[in-house]
Design a protein around this nucleic acid. Sequence first.
DNA 1: TCCGTAATTTAACGATCGTTCGAGTTGCCG
DNA 2: CGGCAACTCGAACGATCGTTAAATTACGGA
Lengths: 201, 201
Amino acid sequence: MRPSGQDALLEAARQEFSEQGFGSASIRAIAQRAGMSLSAMYHYYSGKQELLHAILDESLDTYFASCARALAQVGEEPADRLSAVVAATTRFRAEHLARSNILLSEERSLAPERLASYSSRHAEATNLFRHAIDAGVAAGIFLTPYPDESRRAVIAMCNAVAQWFRPDGPLSLDELVDRHVAIALTIVEYRPQRSWSAGRG
Amino acid sequence: MRPSGQDALLEAARQEFSEQGFGSASIRAIAQRAGMSLSAMYHYYSGKQELLHAILDESLDTYFASCARALAQVGEEPADRLSAVVAATTRFRAEHLARSNILLSEERSLAPERLASYSSRHAEATNLFRHAIDAGVAAGIFLTPYPDESRRAVIAMCNAVAQWFRPDGPLSLDELVDRHVAIALTIVEYRPQRSWSAGRG
DNA sequence: TCCGTAATTTAACGATCGTTCGAGTTGCCG
DNA sequence: CGGCAACTCGAACGATCGTTAAATTACGGA
């Protein structure tokens, strides 16, 4: 069976917002792309803004779930946690190009009331990187003198995937993820220690 | 004396396009911001598209001039050339936030006819990084196993500056440039050699 | 069967958009 | 002074925008 009205609508809106930008996208084009009339759309969402809000919310849910799944499979070692977050973020950017493009460029189109909650969740995502990197620096296994700039560099590397990656490109996603993890560990200047668990206290 | 009509118009358009996005920006708001009537604007530019084209063109001119100036002050050593390009790009992003935001997000708003020439110049900018990095890898002083992904990571780090940097922030621009250069050399895994000039041939 | 709710339709509203037109003003050059 | 070009203006055009209203169909439970 084909996707229900809601799903088809969100998918159509994702494509339009991602391709044209929120301001240039037309809700008539979205409805047509979803195979329904303009008014049918208003039965599900009360307007263009709520459509954007729904997309951003659902996209963040998907992203956080992906990060949580990756983090659940590793221990407390900062290198493993950073690797997990880098891998999850790179994979999300590549597998959800439209979602990522909207997340990364349409924050300005959010109504002021909704911007606060979005910014809060955005900061929460940044903290996933921050905690892993700061923990590694504190433990002496990440030698970078610039934890903040390193974090921004790692995040920027992952985010940029949404701008250039194409599924049919020469590089497989699995290979890209491995390379991004390696580069991220290079950026923070990861130097493994013999025993992590014994190093505490 | 205050800026002439053209300059005031371009500055106003930069602000509006950067804040609202090309699609959402109104040429009426731009004209008002520039202190002239709507029709006066059409005396200088034949439409919204040409306004965007003029901004992108002038921004790229400024960027390339900045890169050329930086490269003219260094020799042929790949590390120096990469450092120069990273410094010039980081500085440009920070000093021209509006220009950078438009350059990095409004390519999709360009008319198809003009997109070709823009993409060509954009690729030329990428090549500044590519040549420096590939030369270093070929010379054996950049040890990164992933020159392409390293290049994308370095460029992404520089580009991201336009999204978070604020002139009144805690970090001075000079200090940020130094850190970005250091991180870029870390990403490509720069290992200095005793004598570069003797290593040729 | 009847009722109520969901789902979907066509039509239209007011607003704003990019663009154009025609006339008016300014200022320089001969 | 006359005239031409650069410049500026208010008003309007047609199109499209987001949104709303009224009316009709589909359908599940009492």
